[in-house]
Structures are given as structure tokens and as C-alpha cells.
Amino acid sequence: MNGKTEIVLAGVGGQGLVTIGAILGEAAVLEGRNACLSSSYGTEARGTFTKSDVIISDDEIDFIEAEEPAAVLCLAQAAYDRYSPVLGPEAVLIYDSDRVTPSGKGASRETGYSLSALADPGTANLAALGLVTALSGVIREESAAEVLRKKTASSSPLRKGSEEAFRKGFAAVSL
């Protein structure tokens, strides 16, 4: 993958979106590319609309927010309602079918997955990371897996089963 890729991870606070955004970024850096992650959130730690923009590029990254995302992950209806109507024709939108009822208007580039079928609530964000990784192709599966293993061994480790959830999400796309 060359040039610049933008990904938006949107949902509500507490879903672990910043965590998976950081994994995407870290995996890209591991691949020798530039990455940035900027998040927009409220003062509450839980419950309000949040989004994380991940930009991965071979060149220096100028503006830090996504302007033309190649992929958008929506883990809440509010996120879906915001992005579905405005996405460009090339972009893919991935939503959690447990939480989002699609409008049907963008059906051709929108895919729903039931996160509860892929992972426990505690690792659903990692399953979503697997989906985004597979559908966007922005980083390699193994790069993300390596970051996950590193984070599992760190002082504030990810939950057990994180890598499995990620792999399951990744595999779900090719099924």
C-alpha cells in the first residue's frame, strides 16, 4: 500500500477505539511508515460520541484529521448516521450489526458484522480491528499481531484473548 490512507474509527466512549487506533498506528510505524492518531471526544470517559482518525502515510503527514477516509468503522448508530451519508464512493464503511441499523442507501460499500458473534464484549474492539485491517489492507495482519503481543506483555496489558479476537475479526472478512 502506497501513499496516504485515512481511517476513521467512530462510536461512543468506552468502546476501546483509541486503543485500536493506536495499534493501527504502531503497526504502521513497525512497517517503517509514518502514522498519526487524533481523537475527538467529550470530557466524559464513557458514553458520548467519539472518533479517532488514523492516518498512515509514506510521506510526512500534514493535517492530522482524516478528510477522505478509505475506511470508516461505526460501532454506534450515531457514528453510522454521521458517516454513511457523506462517505465517498471509494470508501468502505464497516458497522457492528448488533448496534447499527443501516439505512440501506449505501449498501454496496457498507458491510455489517456482528461483533458479539466474533468476540466477548471485552475484546470486541480487537475483533473490529481485525475487520478494519482486513478490509482496508492498510497494514499487514502480522504487524498488528506483533503489536498486540507486545502490548499483552506490557505493564498495562490488553485483555486475554485479544490476539484471538483480532484474528477472528480478520478471518471473518475472507469468509
Binding site: G25, N34, A35, C36, S38, I64
Partner: peptide, 9 residues
């Protein structure tokens, strides 16, 4: 806040 909360390489 944008630069301080931003993550980058």
C-alpha cells in the same frame, strides 16, 4: 490539545 493528544511516530 490537538498536538498534545495526538499520537505520532
Amino acid at each position: 490539545a490537538a498536538v498534545a493528544k495526538l499520537k505520532e511516530n
